[in-house]
Nucleic acid binder design. Structure first.
Lengths: 350, 350
DNA sequence: GCGTTTCGACGAAGCGCTTCGACGGACGAG
DNA sequence: CTCGTCCGTCGAAGCGCTTCGTCGAAACGC
């Protein structure tokens, strides 16, 4: 493998001149630069990543701490990871995967100290997350996907749950729905400090109250069976329900199945609006679900960009952002039963 | 950040002795080793990854070239990636993500030359894949997930499509099914040289013929709509069909929907056995699908282990392996219509 | 015309580690 | 008691690059 020294010899210049030509840190005359570029091309030269990293104290590696979930990763996570990796690459960085859960803060600290990563992206932060503290103390640039309890000055990008739940409620209310239930993630997720469970619930409750409506929210285990039971519970609590907002993909399938089994047609009798969904999930139901799908790819891109602005002072800094979910029309939402047909159109959710 | 020099000073030994104590490359007395370990603990020492990499010419990084698919990644890919990352970490390696499609062999070559990765894991190899050639020529250790056209001596792990399709057919035949159709991936995937499309089709055809049965295989686009159309096409071709084997998750939902719409009960009238499925997909149908699910996690683990055995001569080498999919019972497969009820049990798939 | 900038290039000192050759002392063999 | 071995340790030479200080020569001002 050709080294920078080889290039220098071939171009009849000193090693350092090659380095400057490559980095642009100091001026190099056009003639010299040309000779160097030729030499590099002829030798197929590629700078050695380790040497460069050692000398510059810049590994050009970003680490992504992702949830090593037992349940397997959902499509949103995959989309996020993929988009993050791609964005990193476009900017000359590598993305390494660090599978660490909230409890593994010490491991994170050790890895960070090895200087392998210039910055860290932290997915699925819990409300109280020791990993964040570790990163903060270590002084490594980092960006959270999600937010810790205190909505502090810590750099983050996140889904805008308030906006998303409000959009969902608004969409349904415009169609005449007044009795709407919310199928949330499980109690177990809440116990783990999984933030979306709280933020979405609060958002839904607020959105309903704001419109003078009674919110019916339920935390439901991530299983079709629990989804079926949720329908039973919620319909008992409020028989006049005409719509469900769901943020629990697996349970949603149970909800659909149970409603159909009870002879309730979707969307004629009951509407279902599934929020924060993974790509393609809507299509897997019959009828296809109307969804507000999670902006996984966008989060990945923005997260990396934000992190890079922290790592590399020369890039424009980007502010903390909240991204709402995007409406993807399906066939599971219709005007509330009993409404005049001229209300038939579905207004945009935004 | 403490350096090895700091540790050496504190433990009153030379730099090199610390290095030997850490690596075990040369003997170090117990007393000395103890002093060194104490010093390391007191300083919170962690060896610098870049320096170590430069000096040893070992980055301790594995690269995973994964399909930067437009369609978004499926659960199997996510499971694979996650398991690969975890296995790498358990062995003291990092996993970096390189999103490159088949056409980006030059980019792969450049990155490899930068010496960032000790070895490369290549997902979703196409039948003819320039990336493999590049890796081969560069002399980097690599392992393919999947296989190229010539079933050569190239290191790989893969799903055992023959076995999986044969298991599927066997399972159905034991239940009395004689007219079975296969819903494959799309023609487009075949045109891209996507190997599973071919291997599974060949496997299915062979499995049917071996039993004296007529195979009905169809390549179907990855959409529910195409799945519905496939049902129409196949039922027209062979009205006596009692079972579908599907290897196309999105289309499968269309298949289910179309059958139900035609008043055909699943599994009473028609059985559906979905193969090479992502985790959790079965539960998303109503009734839940019986599946042979893809061993994503196992492939990830074995792929990394194989690669490490190539990278690091001191590890036991592992042979090329083919892993079959695993039966996950659901409620979409039953004895063929018209069969006696005493045949009611579902035999194990192998 | 001479001193002073400015520009472009050079040499050398690291970055923090691995690894090779060497060496002193303890120990067994003769 | 002496010589050869082996064990444990040390010093130094890189690994391939970045970056600082420096310096010659061309360009400039008065």
């Amino acid at each position: 493998m050709a080294t920078m020294q080889d290039v220098a010899r071939r171009a009849q210049v000193s090693l350092s001149t090659v380095s400057y030509a490559l980095s642009g840190t100091r001026p190099v005359s056009d003639a010299t630069r040309r000779r160097i570029e030729e030499a590099m091309a002829e030798l197929g030269y590629q700078p050695n990543a380790m040497a460069r990293g050692l000398a510059s104290r810049r590994s050009h590696v970003l680490a992504l701490i992702y949830p090593a979930m037992e349940k397997g990763l959902g499509g949103t996570v995959a989309e996020f990871v993929s988009s993050a990796a791609e964005t990193a690459r476009e900017n000359g960085y590598h993305l390494v995967l660090w599978p660490f859960r909230t409890t593994q803060a010490p491991e994170v600290r050790d890895l960070v100290r090895q200087g392998m990563a210039d910055g860290v992206l932290l997915m699925e932060v819990a409300l109280d997350d020791a990993r964040v503290d570790v990163l903060h103390e270590a002084g490594v640039p980092y960006t959270m996907i999600g937010r810790t309890r205190d909505v502090s000055d810590r750099p983050s990008v996140d889904i805008d749950f308030e906006r998303t739940t409000d959009d969902a409620v608004a969409h349904l209310v415009e169609l005449g729905h007044e009795h709407v239930a919310f199928v949330n993630h499980s109690q177990a997720s809440a116990d783990d400090g999984y933030a979306p469970t709280f933020r979405a619930e609060e958002g839904f409750v607020a959105a309903m109250r704001r419109r003078g409506l009674e919110p019916h929210a339920l935390r439901v285990d991530e299983s079709p069976r629990a989804g079926r039971e949720a329908v039973a519970t919620l319909l008992e609590r409020e028989p006049r329900l005409t719509a469900f907002v769901t943020m629990n993909e697996i349970a949603t399938f149970g909800v659909v199945a149970e409603l159909q089994q009870r002879g309730l047609a979707i969307p004629a009798d009951i509407s279902i609006l599934s929020i924060v969904t993974s790509p393609g999930v809507g299509e897997m139901s019959n009828p296809p679900l109307t969804t507000l799908h999670a902006p996984g790819a966008e989060l990945g891109r923005l997260g990396v960009q934000k992190l890079l602005s922290l790592v590399d002072g020369s890039r424009p800094s980007t502010p903390n952002v909240l991204i709402p979910c995007v409406l993807e029309p399906g066939s599971s939402v219709a005007p509330a039963a009993g409404r005049a047909p001229d209300d038939d159109r579905e207004p945009a959710a935004r």
